[in-house]
Design a protein around this nucleic acid. Structure first.
Lengths: 333, 333
DNA sequence: GTGAAAGCGCTAACAG
DNA sequence: CTGTTAGCGCTTTCAC
């Protein structure tokens, strides 16, 4: 059992003090060349790797940012998160990821775990959250930025879910759709899902429909669920347009439409939201709302790093979304 | 600026020593009820959260396991990783994820970062890796388990990429295909990709073909790349069967086949590998090799936790894969 | 059952 | 430019 080498071992081998070794690693310019060479040689020889916990404890900075996402399984967050982490990596920050499985209690737990592990800042998804968690973050003075949603009043970087969905719904209404059904992710604890449904309602109201007449089926996350929700919707309301809260649900609905031998968009139109790669792969390609995932990830990384460095407060940024024309939306028969 | 409360603050407020507070948190049974209640009340009141770095430094255990994956963007790893993390979470372990962007240097960096951050064990993808990294892990005595690949000689939990692909290719050869083309992920530094191509070659050889006649196009990761590789293959070899190294490439090829106005599988058969959700969503559904992602993730978590707890060494486990019948493989015209 | 005290490995003044 | 010296917040013997 080889004991992992410590700073002291390196110092001894190089014949210097631990402070000098520390400087070599953290501020090489403060050490004269020959000494540094000797130290580096010792580092190499011993295979020394600094103990992060000790460093964090002593220096009170970790160069680490945490993110809690609902799930890693679903591509909705993957693209943005990858961009987020790439930007972080370029700047020498490390990303810690935890997933909450869409469970608020797990999310709170993950947030605590990340903060305890030295996350200097946090990326969170959506605004719905126990106030106790917000307060915890405040007392710990850990900057937290919400993504995938926008709210001028709270630090967030994302887009206007309600307006984006309303625009899509308005487009469909213009085409003449009047029997509309909605498949939404569970709205409890999910402000984005709620906002999207609200968007549909608003557009319907503006078009002279009664928003309360629009059936909304909630489907837990996953493709299968999207399919089952589609079944229920067709059995009860037989809409000419099915608006889905995200691309994954839409893909499930689209698949199920095939099982029903319905032609999309001739027999029924289906729309998605998010504009992930999947939306372009299914046949026909989904008409959906394209979200600037990468831009959001990069901007979030930069904002959070600035906040961690004490360079100004976290602000809110609202990115533009656009309707991505696919082949699943057409006028009703 | 509220200073984050420390153990000492809690101790002071509860009128006990820091040792007692520590015991309340780590071994409650060692503290008598009334004291514990007082301590817990103080913890609540102060919103105390233990400093993980300090704990790690003092206790030399972190209950943390790290994973380095090539990318988060691509669903190939998402499902297994999610299962991995869920199992870890149940047992009170935390997962740290880093991604390497398929770059060996970044992977090495991520491995060091995770170890420095106290990862007691590591999940890695595939066997191709600079020996220096292996040695580093050995000197740090950090157990590392390779997943998505199998090798009886090195701790790994996965499947036989070569045999699995060979079985799929054999099935296609039985159907009468003789003009075969392969779209593979870049094989340099990717033993899984190499093994899969080898599998095709082996099956072809067994069927009396000359393995060297089979064109192999390497496509970087991503759907687009799969499509472009398909173009090149069709232009040069016009195979009756395109075997793809993974489902993402296959989805790209399938999409491109539509652009070519080729009917799949009538004009050309296309197969995938991995059996991710995507394979069932595209139209027609991909014929692919189904990999037990969740089982692999769970087994990897258990093996790694056992190794971290010193309960035995890491072993190798070979999981079974099976051909998943879709609608993209049929006899050639 | 609880407290006192000695570190864990590293950084950061402060001297020299 | 380099060494000395305190801690950072927590766990863990060893006494009481």
């Amino acid at each position: 059992m080889t004991n992992t080498p410590t700073l002291e071992d390196v110092a001894a081998r190089a014949g210097v003090s631990t402070a000098t070794v520390s400087r070599c690693l953290n501020a090489p310019e403060k050490v004269i060349e020959p000494t540094r060479a000797r130290v580096m040689a010792a580092v190499e020889a011993l295979g020394y790797a600094p103990n992060f916990s000790a460093r964090a404890l002593a220096a009170k900075r970790t160069q680490t940012i945490g993110a809690v996402i609902p799930t890693m399984e679903n591509a909705i967050f993957a693209e943005g998160l990858q961009a987020f982490q790439e930007r972080l990596g370029e700047a020498g920050y490390m990303l810690l990821v935890a997933s909450s499985s869409y469970d608020p209690a797990r999310e709170a737990e993950a947030i605590r775990a990340l903060v305890a592990r030295g996350a200097e800042g946090l990326l969170l998804i959506g605004h719905d959250r126990d106030p106790a968690v917000i307060e915890f973050l405040a007392t710990q003075s850990v900057p937290a930025l919400v993504a995938w949603a926008h709210d001028a009043a709270r630090p967030s970087i994302g887009f206007d879910n309600r307006a984006a969905m309303a625009a899509l719904a308005a487009r469909a209404l213009d085409l003449g759709h009047r029997r509309i059904g909605v498949i939404s992710a569970p709205r409890a604890g999910n402000d984005r899902a709620r906002a999207r449904v609200e968007g549909v309602r608003a557009a319907a109201g503006a078009a002279g429909l009664n928003p309360d007449d629009i059936p909304v089926i909630e489907a837990p996350y996953g493709i299968e669920a999207g399919g089952e929700a589609f079944d229920r919707l067709m059995e009860t309301a037989a809409p000419s347009l099915v608006i889905c809260g995200n691309d994954v649900l839409a893909a499930g609905a689209l698949k199920r439409a095939r099982d029903w031998r319905l032609s999309v968009p001739r027999d029924v139109s289906i729309t998605g939201f998010d504009g992930i790669e999947l939306s372009r792969l299914v046949t026909p390609a989904l008409t959906t709302v394209h979200v600037p995932h990468r831009a959001m990830g990069v901007a979030a990384a930069e904002a959070l790093m600035a906040a961690c460095a004490g360079e100004g407060e976290l602000a809110s940024l609202c990115l533009k979304t656009e309707i991505s024309d696919g082949e699943t939306l057409a006028p009703p028969r």
